[in-house]
Computed example of a mutant assay.
Amino acid sequence: MSAPAAGRVAIVTGGSGGIGRAVVERLAADGFSVAVHFSGNPGRAEEAVRTVIERGGRAIAVGGDVGDETAMGALFDETENAFGGVDVVVNTAGIMVLAPVAEFDLEALDRMHRINIRGSFVIAQLAARRLRSSGALVNFSTSVTRLQMPTYAPYVASKAAVEGLTLILARELRGRDITVNAVAPGPTATPLFLDGKDEDEVQRLSQAAPLERLGRPEDVAEVVAFLAGPARWVNGQVVFVNGGIG
């Protein structure tokens, strides 16, 4: 477990399921009060909140479109009103649509870019304005940016944009004592990853890493907790969390 974070406050976008849910529970275990952001499933967010509270932590659920700056401003407002400020923002919200470039639906591209790129920018902008000193922003990329896998090009393009935003924002916040990093998971057993894949493909991907298994959401949450807490000398980096793929 990371160093105690009593009195510190985190926002986790996309915190109602998959990796986001694991991050919520890990940060709460480390002593953070947590705002669990959701977009389309308030029930899962409330379940995450109940889990945190039952374990002695503090949490609230707040909904909204990550691409809407007004809604996300309200997310920060509600978090500050509930807990007194914001110290850490973990931006796990994202979608993945796969198809070859030649066949890709441009409406799907626009939808993915609104969430993955515009959403990341909106959250990063608010974090840059409102994080307290000694804070941290953790964005999410993907290990597929380095693997050149067919059908992933539109998704990778969106996540490459997140990496560029992350590396530059870390330098723009000079003097603020705020770290900005990105986590790039490999194949991880979440609904987002497993959706649309048959058993053979899942088995093949599970053997890609030298550790010969899929990642677990908790594996990724462990790294996020490090970046959100004790890792004050890790800044402006993309941290690959993939069991040794690529």
Rank of each mutant, 00 (worst) to 15 (best):
V34E: 02
E103A: 14
G73W: 04
I117M: 12
G40C: 06
G94P: 00
A29E: 12
A93Y: 01
R114C: 07
D30F: 11
A74C: 10
V97L: 15
S120G: 07
E103W: 13
A74K: 14
A128F: 02
H113C: 14
L106K: 07
A28W: 04
A128M: 07
G57D: 06
G40F: 08
R111Q: 14
A61E: 06
D110A: 15
D105T: 08
V62Y: 03
I95S: 11
A45Y: 02
G40K: 11
R118M: 09
R118K: 15
V89M: 06
L126W: 12
M112D: 02
P100M: 14
R50H: 11
R111I: 09
G57A: 06
I123M: 15
I123N: 04
L106Y: 12
G63S: 08
A128I: 05
A93G: 01
T92F: 06
L126T: 04
M96V: 12
T51Q: 12
L106C: 07
G31P: 03
G57S: 05
V34T: 04
G43H: 14
A45W: 01
V49A: 02
P42C: 14
A93E: 00
D77I: 10
L98E: 11
S120K: 00
E80M: 12
A45C: 08
A102H: 14
L126K: 13
R114F: 09
G56M: 12
M112K: 02
A28M: 05
A99V: 05
D87I: 05
I53L: 12
E54V: 09
T70G: 12
A35L: 05
A59C: 10
G64E: 06
L106P: 04
V36R: 02
R118H: 11
G119V: 05
D65E: 14
M96H: 12
G85E: 03
V49T: 03
F38E: 01
G64M: 06
N81I: 07
S33L: 08
A59D: 01
D77C: 08
E69W: 09
I115C: 03
D68I: 06
G73A: 13
R114W: 10
L106W: 10
R55V: 09
E107Q: 15
A124D: 00
N81F: 12
G64T: 01
G63W: 01
R55T: 10
V34D: 00
L75R: 08
F83N: 00
A71E: 12
V52E: 03
S39D: 11
I115P: 00
F76D: 01
G84T: 09
R58W: 13
V90I: 13
A108P: 08
G57Q: 04
A61M: 07
F32W: 06
H113D: 09
D105G: 11
A48I: 08
G43M: 10
S120E: 00
A127G: 07
T70K: 15
A128P: 06
G31T: 08
E69K: 05
V49G: 01
E103T: 14
L75S: 03
R55Y: 13
G67S: 13
